[in-house]
Each structure stands twice: as structure tokens, then as C-alpha cells.
Amino acid sequence: MASSLAPLVLIILRRQESYGYQIIQELRDKSGGQLTVAEGTLYPVLKKMEAKGWIEGVWKKADSGRERRYYKLTSKGTQELEQQYSQLNFVNQLINSLWNLPLSTSSNL
């Protein structure tokens, strides 16, 4: 599950910079509470994405005085997102067209 988080995180960060807890909340809201991954596993994913240069993290102090690490999309990340988005769309269309094929029965053989 953790590896499939990457494109979702890229999409979320496309709109605005965000921090781990906020990203998780957005994923939880949009999935209608269906997201079952341990929240902490998002952070290694963010770290991996940062190492690949797709996102950039900066420590910032919130109004409450609490420090959070904010992530934003880099230009490399934007390119990656476009590529992954078209790939996922392609795979999605392929799955749909394969799914909609009539079921074969022994009489068809």
C-alpha cells in the first residue's frame, strides 16, 4: 500500500504545500475513511520522494509554535506526476476494457 501512496501525495501537493498529518487527513477524507495504511508509513514515502527530487521538505514553525515539515512539489515532481497520471489513466482504461469483455464459457471454445 505504501508505494501506491506516491502518486496520491504528488496529486495532493500539486495544489498546495502541505505537511504529513494534513496529507494523511486529506487522503482519509477523500477515501471516505477507507484508507487503512498505518499513518506513520507515509513519512518514509515522503522521504523517498524527496530523495528522488520530486518534492522538497522544509521545517516551518506554525502559529502554535509547533514545528512541522512542509513539502512542496518540485518541477521534477510535476513532470513525474504528469507521467504517472497518464500511465495510471492508461492502465485504468485497459483494466476497464478488459473487465467489460464478455465472459467466455466452455461452449465458446
Partner: peptide, 11 residues
């Protein structure tokens, strides 16, 4: 990493 996880727990 530890600081980030702590911040998450507080939030």
C-alpha cells in the same frame, strides 16, 4: 524523522 513523527502525534 523522529521530530516529524512527534509532530504528527501532537497534531
Amino acid at each position: 524523522d523522529a521530530a516529524e513523527l512527534s509532530a504528527h502525534l501532537y497534531d
